[in-house]
Amino acid sequence: EPSQADLDALLSAVRDNRLSIEQAVTLLTPSSGGGSGGGSMDAKEILTRFKDGGLDRAAAQALLAGRTPA
């Protein structure tokens, strides 16, 4: 399960175009075949909204942490 520091680094990389959204989703869902963790939004949607400015960093982190299976 990614830590808050991992999520923060991942969000920074996506925002700075050092990591594509697809690459980030793969890192967030290493063994689930890329499927959502059952959250209301999947990781790709969360990351896309964050990059487009629709979500701030704290909200994106909380959503990603919340949808990651324990």
Rank of each mutant, 00 (worst) to 15 (best):
E1M: 12
E1Y: 15
S3F: 14
Q4G: 10
A5T: 14
A5Q: 12
A5M: 15
D6H: 14
L7D: 02
L7A: 02
D8F: 07
D8G: 06
A9H: 08
A9D: 13
L11H: 00
L11R: 00
S12K: 06
S12M: 06
S12E: 14
A13Q: 05
A13H: 04
A13C: 07
V14H: 00
R15D: 05
R15S: 09
D16P: 00
N17F: 03
N17E: 09
N17V: 03
N17P: 00
R18F: 06
R18A: 08
L19Q: 02
L19K: 02
L19P: 00
L19M: 10
S20R: 03
S20G: 05
I21W: 02
E22W: 04
Q23E: 14
Q23L: 09
Q23N: 08
A24W: 01
A24P: 00
A24H: 01
V25I: 06
V25P: 00
T26F: 06
L27V: 05
L27T: 04
L27D: 03
L28M: 06
L28P: 01
T29S: 13
T29K: 10
T29E: 11
T29H: 12
T29C: 07
P30E: 11
S31H: 12
S31W: 11
S31E: 13
S31D: 14
S32F: 12
S32Q: 11
S32C: 14
G33L: 12
G33R: 08
G33F: 10
G34S: 12
G35Y: 02
G35P: 14
G35T: 14
G35M: 13
G35K: 09
G38W: 06
G38V: 14
G39V: 10
S40F: 14
M41W: 10
D42P: 06
D42Q: 08
D42F: 10
D42L: 10
D42H: 08
K44M: 07
K44G: 05
E45H: 05
E45M: 05
I46K: 00
T48S: 08
R49K: 11
R49P: 01
F50C: 01
F50Q: 00
F50R: 00
K51E: 01
K51I: 06
K51F: 05
K51P: 01
D52K: 06
D52W: 05
G54T: 11
L55M: 07
D56P: 05
D56W: 02
D56S: 10
D56G: 05
R57K: 14
R57M: 14
A58F: 08
A58P: 04
A58S: 10
A58N: 09
A60E: 00
Q61I: 15
A62R: 13
L63A: 12
L63V: 03
L63I: 08
L63D: 03
L63P: 00
L64Q: 01
L64S: 00
A65E: 15
A65W: 05
A65C: 07
G66C: 10
G66V: 09
G66I: 08
G66H: 05
G66D: 15
R67F: 15
R67T: 15
R67V: 15
T68G: 08
T68R: 06
T68W: 11
T68Y: 11
T68K: 06
T68S: 08
T68Q: 13
P69Q: 11
P69K: 10
A70C: 14
A70N: 04
